[in-house]
Nucleic acid binder design. Structure first.
Lengths: 261, 261
DNA sequence: CAGTGGTCTAGACCACATC
DNA sequence: ATGTGGTCTAGACCACTGT
């Protein structure tokens, strides 16, 4: 029915009908993706108001000159991102949370992106060693197989935040320490043609030993965050195992969980 | 070409062609989902070997009597789960990691599922209070608005593991303490028609205060894991804010991160 | 009842990887 | 040159939601 103005649950904004989308069929970017990006932009700029919204898929498809499956593919990608909600028999709505967060997975991203960017990283060790049992198991190698051991100290504002210890299958990657400090591990892996796909992390806490304390400028017994991570590339091969410790006073993990039904 | 037996990169197992799938068009379960489940089962039982596999989509569609989009939808869902990899011009392969993990997001699930199941939970407080600033902000309410405060002590094997403090918008849910101890918070929310969609978590660490130590049977100064979480339902509304502390000696978070390109 | 999204089909053409 | 997945179309019917 769409009465004009129903403040109850239908936030009547500019609505979708007044927006126009620029679709370029000549572009290498898929149409569904072009549409998704422009819808997302409209949502994030709150041109599309939270609450009720989005005409039905059939109308949309004729208005934009696209087939319904293409429209659906675009909408679905935004549903997956948590920006839209679909209800059968009702319609597609812009999610209405006041706090619309960045939504991206972090902590891996912190290291993926920020690695070597904002903070500084000092390579403490970078050598080939026989794999300790823990690393061998995580990487799917025999114990004692050759692996590259990487130990790095990360600082922000000149003060230590984390001590990172990583193991990589030897020969996977050339690891120049200077470039490592400038570029970051994940960026180097990406440049080497390794596309990360997923990672399994375990986060815990414990008290700092005296040695750890002196390296991180904490007292012995101070609370530390610990993290072990195994990272997989897009073929499912283990490409990295890391065991890290963080000063809890200066670092915490923040991330988004999605519940799948 | 598919030479029979190419141990180099094509783990020649029973291959897909020998498997048959039972598709029930009368079932309310979508065909793509039936196919996905059966493929997943075959992969997990290693009937389908890691490495090379899976005939092309067109063949599959004629063999199973389904259209290609339907086949693709099934395959895509397994790609999203990280069980399959697609490469243009190459084909679809079963991911080859020796360690194929449960894959599901945890820690929220720990609480979603295990809540009230294995471990026991004692409700310490369950009352309506004015929202403290932190909880109000997380829930998108005015400071001092009425919220339900829930404080629970969780034990495994009779010994404490965690102290959970939750805030919920008042009126969202009837919260009977006895049922809460037997059923768990998330199960009760689900029964009340609230479908959780996502949550934002922050994990950190700090030393236990004397009071916390005595409640968790730890010494003062022992390392604790801390977690703050805001949970959203499928419409994007905040439905819960929690601030939890865990004995680091008995608990850690484990979870899977997916990297999106 | 009318309107919505959910599923499914049978084609088509293109981009990319490999030989 | 061939075979693969990636994209896209124009329909169809069903299941659910609201009135």
């Amino acid at each position: 029915m769409a009465k004009t103005g129903d403040p109850a649950h239908a936030a009547t904004g500019p609505a979708l009908s007044t927006l126009d989308f620029a679709l370029d069929r000549g572009s290498p970017v898929p149409l569904y993706h072009q549409l998704a990006q422009q819808l997302e932009a409209a949502i994030l700029l709150i041109v599309l108001a939270p609450g009720n919204l989005l005409g039905n898929e059939v109308d949309l498809s004729v208005r934009l000159g696209l087939s319904r499956p293409t429209i659906r593919q675009a909408i679905q990608s935004l549903v997956d991102k948590g920006l839209l909600v679909r209800r059968r028999g009702v319609g597609t709505q812009v999610v209405h949370s006041q706090v619309r967060r960045p939504l991206e997975l972090s902590s891996l991203y912190d290291d993926l992106e920020a690695a070597g960017q904002g903070p500084t990283t000092e390579v403490v060790r970078n050598e080939t060693v026989p794999a300790p049992a823990e690393a061998a198991a995580a990487l799917g190698l025999a114990e004692g197989a050759e692996v590259v051991l990487l130990e790095r100290l990360r600082r922000t504002h000149g003060r230590p935040v984390a001590l990172l210890c990583n193991y990589l299958p030897s020969g996977l990657l050339g690891l120049d320490s200077a470039r490592l400090e400038a570029t970051g591990l994940y960026r180097m892996m990406r440049s080497a043609g390794i596309t990360l796909h997923s990672a399994r992390q375990t986060v815990g806490a414990r008290a700092a030993t005296a040695a750890e304390g002196s390296r991180l400028e904490e007292k012995e017994g101070a609370a530390l965050l610990t993290m072990q991570r195994t990272a997989y590339d897009d073929t499912g091969r283990q490409v990295e195992y890391g065991t890290h410790i963080y000063r809890a006073s200066r670092y915490s993990f923040e991330f988004q969980l999605l519940v799948r039904p």
